[in-house]
Design a protein around this nucleic acid. Structure first.
Lengths: 232, 232
DNA sequence: CGCAATATTGATTCCGTTCAAGGGTGGTGG
DNA sequence: CCACCACCCTTGAACGGAATCAATATTGCG
């Protein structure tokens, strides 16, 4: 429980579903929500646990993953400022099907389930935009099923690097605005850590990327795009 | 355009989202919908094409797939009676992101986009149940990403066989109520046709399954379940 | 009946995993 | 302040699962 940010600010953030809530709904949310700070590594909610509300990210970055039977994580999404999480469990009254963990310090709001469900039922525009959001995620998930099934690890790594740039942008020096461990990168691509390391150093020696510590810069997007075989 | 089935019948079918539409909405849908028969192999809509309505399946079975850059299909879902398709494109006003093709002769209704969107906006219960449906698919998709990334082909084939039984049931002799080509099976599992054939004949010689032509009977569910490492 | 699609089996290759060992880095506490 | 420890990164070697290529066999439809 810390300094509470203003939801009206959040709702203006890019591609937030909350752009369709009315002023009074906004006020209602404000009055019912709580906020909390999380440190890198903190788990916001865990796969299998009960959630009784949704989480909105004011700042920071989370990874959303499923854990395999051998304990290996598969990252299925990231969440950053303006994003909403946990709606699946809330809407379906089911335990969380993923784990959400901070990879950067984060400030996150919590909105009780009843508030969200009420708005979904009474505000058709909000329901529609939330649906569009879920549909988009569904499409991305289906695309990724195809990619993991059909592409090589090299192709998928190229794709993931481009996705990270699109999703998180670059800083003034051109480096990706996100740092992941090699293991986390492997857990997105769906491969072994060693494979990611080998391929990154291949890309580096082919001058497709530049690596400085944990920071990565894409040097040849056209090549990566061609390699990734993604035409979106 | 053929003999038009009654939507009230459809809406009673198991797990149909239409169970939440009101009587008058139902009547409205009836008056606006059109129906069509499709033969095995017919494509209902193709990835990239525009759809201006949703499809409801009265009878028959479809495969929903994405096509990779080399033309290989990745099946991401099946649709059978009571299911709805194409809502993603309708809700988001985007081209279809998958192809839907009949693998059994099918009778399919078409409901114009405006009708569905109108009901979503005005009937909160319907919006909610449609959302729950999409969320369920999203969760299944994310689970499958993890599975393809982490499990062996053998494990995934076991999982797919169990899924087919759950989804389509068995006939009086215990055989799966669906027949797929080996290639289609491979396109679900995400592997090569030859690999599926080899593994099926392994399962057969281990007496885990029985194969009679295109028909498959699961003989040892417990073993398949253990093998698949799925605990759902 | 004949052709085309589907299924099967074998041989070979190779991509990626696994196992192993060593080097680097950052954070913490004495 | 720096020494130590845990964690992360890197590289090498060997193995193995699955893809690919190739050559039939079988099925079922027109």
């Amino acid at each position: 429980m810390t300094n509470s940010p203003n939801c009206k600010e959040c709702s203006r953030k890019s591609d937030s579903v909350f752009s369709t809530v009315t002023l009074e709904e906004n006020t209602f949310i404000e009055s019912e929500k709580t906020c909390e700070n999380y440190k890198r590594g903190d788990v916001i909610y865990r796969e299998g646990s009960r959630i009784n509300g949704v989480f909105c990210i004011c700042s920071g970055v989370l990874k959303i993953y499923k854990t395999g039977s051998d304990g290996k994580e598969q990252i299925v999404a990231f969440a950053k400022e303006g994003n909403i999480m946990g709606y699946r469990s809330v809407l379906s009254h089911e335990p969380a099907c993923t784990t959400a963990q901070a990879i950067e310090d984060a400030l996150i709001c919590y909105i009780p389930a009843a508030v969200i469900i009420n708005i979904v039922k009474t505000n058709g525009e909000f329901a529609l935009s939330l649906m569009q959001l879920i549909c988009k995620e569904l499409n991305q998930a289906n695309s990724y099923i195809k990619d993991i099934a059909q592409k090589t690890v090299r192709e998928r790594l190229a794709e993931v690097l481009l996705m990270l740039e699109t999703n998180f942008g670059i800083n003034e020096e051109g480096y990706l605005n996100i740092t992941l461990t090699r293991e986390e990168l492997a857990n997105i691509v769906g491969t072994a850590t060693e494979s990611v390391i080998r391929l990154l150093s291949e890309f580096k020696s082919e001058e497709i990327i530049v690596i400085s510590r944990k920071y990565i810069k894409l040097n040849n997007r056209a090549f990566l795009k061609k390699l990734s075989k993604s035409f979106s």
